[in-house]
Design a protein around this nucleic acid. Structure first.
Lengths: 166, 166
DNA sequence: ATAATTAATGTGATAATATTGTCATTACCT
DNA sequence: AGGTAATGACAATATTATCACATTAATTAT
């Protein structure tokens, strides 16, 4: 198996169906391997999150889950999100209070998120250089790292082009 | 004036009164220079935020403001926080929905926040290496950066020592 | 197989965080 | 005096998140 490349949702060759299928197949495999249950609700929510590369909010998911899960309540969603986060199948975007599918769940790569303020799509980058620099900085501060949230807001390549052409 | 050093709230020589005074004097000067008003409420809220190096929540501030500002409402706090954020006098800690004083308001340094999960104190680091790596990564992705939130959760030096001695 | 255990979900209530809006009043600036 | 900025005094509402307890489903042990 090859290492994951940085994912560019907007690249012209991006086939979203393939993208989603791969993510779900990987999720299914990982859950099987780990002996945890990717139950129907969890599977459905993961699918809803993968519906686009935009970060999606909890209550937005709730609304979209309800048509086929009439009993869904906030707790339903938050529990499901907790599970998906624990399994590394999604990222929480702290600066948006929102969630986005993770491409790299099979790997331990820590990710950097590039968040476009126009199209709202979130791009993951493995960003080894950033992580190395960050580890170095933490070490200097004698700080033991447990988790990182590295979120960059700005304008993605696609939206730059759109703006340039207007 | 010298460049700001990375601030280590837990270092043994840390004198918090001095720390707060410096921050407030800097804030007063900056507001004067910029022609904006550090009104009594804004000054008070900034003082409350600087009360510790922990990130503090909006409604916590509201409770602490009320004894001497009976009329304070959520809008009061959020307006004030907006002002302090705009002026770069505080940071918003995205991953905690909370706020912390900024040491570097006089400089344009972008900061990295080290957040201890035990004592909850937040340490700022200017982290040039991280920022350089991040700019490089963004450039590679053809992404224009507007703002960054770099938040690292873990165990600070002081809490490591406490844990080791138990 | 069945009982016991653990995991997941249903359900209702509530807490915590944040935004918006209006209009009157007060403070500050020129 | 007139204009702008800030606050008071409401209020209302939106958004995000948690908790407790009952019930159901899945897994494990006997």
């Amino acid at each position: 198996m090859t290492q994951p490349s940085n994912h560019i949702p907007n690249s012209s060759e991006h086939n979203h169906n393939k993208c989603v299928n791969e993510a779900l197949i990987t999720a299914e495999r990982l859950c099987r391997e780990r002996g945890v249950q990717l139950t129907p609700i969890r599977h459905k929510v993961l699918t809803l999150i993968w519906d686009s590369h935009k970060a999606v909010k909890a209550y937005e998911l709730l609304d979209r889950l309800r048509p086929e899960q009439k009993t869904a309540k906030p707790a339903t969603i938050y529990r499901t999100l907790d599970f998906l986060l624990e399994q590394g199948l999604i990222h929480r975007v702290e600066s948006l209070n929102a969630f986005v599918g993770c491409h790299c769940s099979a790997y331990q790569h820590e990710q950097l998120l590039l968040i476009c303020k126009y199209c709202e799509e979130v791009q993951e980058r493995s960003a080894k250089g950033v992580m190395t620099a960050l580890s170095h900085e933490a070490k200097q501060a004698d700080f033991i790292v447990h988790s990182k949230a590295i979120e960059v807001h700005g304008t993605c390549a696609k939206c730059q082009k759109i703006q340039a052409s207007q």
